[in-house]
């Protein structure tokens, strides 16, 4: 049996068709099982070289891609900003061309500039995977969230999904909105009005500032982290006030649907956007998201390496 996957790159969820999204999710479900074997490694990408080009700091996404590539038997090199020639003034283009000159097959890139992966994909023969570009997209995060929802709820179509928190600069939110609306879920965004502008309604989702209403009917509540490291001081008065107004505490949790899933892309700030006990409760699927992230990244690397590559 064959898939219809024709892409060498995964740049955004916006580009993907419903069928392509389902192909990734189905393939990921198969790869998930590899993690339960005695030997957690398959030879699919043997002899391929993958470079993790992380121009913006990341531990979990980079580690997840690295482990995914290793489980597929690819060789992996990690490049991060501080240790690369980018600090010496080399342009992204030159860095990428140098990597290509080393016969790299796959480049996983995280960059603070939206569109950087698209730029590389046009430039290079290698597969380019977007691991987060500015405030634009983080496609593998949305795919792993979708896989988790599909596993737990059996479907995505018709579900009410609330994304709560720091939406404004969130690539996770954007990729999730694209994916969930394509697959027929109803998406509600909620949080402080400074972080959840009305303009997001153009994506086909609902914006509300009434957190009680946003979580009451939700089948899935996806909490986004308050990004301390970005300048947030002017967006709301204090962390304490954010927690009081928008944090998922026990009182609010008690008013959610009894089977509502609690999701978070991590790293979680316990006691800020989520109460510590709720993060550890049986409806929290935060760690399953991590497990599924590995499976989704294996699937994406596998699919983008298949087929269309021309033989020398």
């Amino acid at each position: 049996m064959k898939t219809d996957w024709q892409r060498k790159d995964l740049l955004s969820i916006q580009d993907l068709s419903v069928d392509e999204i389902n192909t990734v999710l189905d393939t990921a479900a198969a790869f998930k099982q590899v993690g339960k074997r005695t030997i957690k490694k398959v030879p699919s990408l043997r002899g391929k070289t993958l470079v993790n080009l992380f121009i913006e700091p990341s531990t979990r996404t980079r580690t997840s891609f690295e482990l995914a590539a290793k489980r597929l038997s690819a060789d992996v090199i990690n490049i991060n900003t501080t240790a690369s020639s980018l600090v010496k003034g080399e342009t992204l283009k030159d860095t990428a061309l140098n990597l290509q000159a080393l016969n790299t097959d796959i480049i996983v890139i995280r960059h603070s500039a939206a569109g950087a992966p698209h730029f590389l994909a046009r430039l290079l023969e290698a597969s380019v995977i977007n691991a987060g570009d500015g405030a634009h997209e983080h496609p593998t995060q949305a795919l792993l969230d979708a896989l988790t929802i599909r596993e737990k709820k059996g479907r995505i179509e018709g579900l009410d999904v609330t994304i709560l928190g720091d939406i404004l600069y969130s690539r996770v939110a954007r990729s999730n909105i694209w994916l969930l609306t394509k697959l027929g879920a109803r998406v509600t965004l909620a949080g402080p009005s400074t972080l959840v502008p009305r303009v997001f309604e153009q994506f086909g989702c609902r914006v509300t500032y009434d957190i009680e209403e946003a979580i009451r009917g939700a089948d899935v509540i996806n909490l986004l982290r308050i990004q301390h490291e970005r300048q947030r001081k002017t967006m709301f008065p204090s962390i304490g006030e954010y927690t009081a107004m928008f944090g998922l505490n026990k009182e609010r949790f008690a008013r959610t649907k009894p089977d509502a899933l609690i999701m978070h892309p991590g790293p979680i700030n316990r006691g800020v956007e989520i109460d510590s006990e709720i993060a550890d409760c049986n409806r929290s699927v935060i760690l399953e998201q991590v497990t599924n992230g590995l499976a989704v990244r294996m699937a994406v690397l596998f699919l983008c390496s298949g087929g269309q590559m021309s033989e020398p």
């Binding site: 049996m1 219809d4 198969a30 099982q33 699919s44 596998f302 699919l303 087929g307």
Partner: peptide, 23 residues
């Protein structure tokens, strides 16, 4: 078992194979 992950012709095919779970 689904052998798609262990095949040696991933790059030779027109499109990637559909991978099913092994059980």
């Amino acid at each position: 078992i689904d052998i798609s992950m262990h095949r040696d012709d991933l790059a030779l095919r027109e499109t990637p194979p559909a991978v099913g779970p092994s059980n």
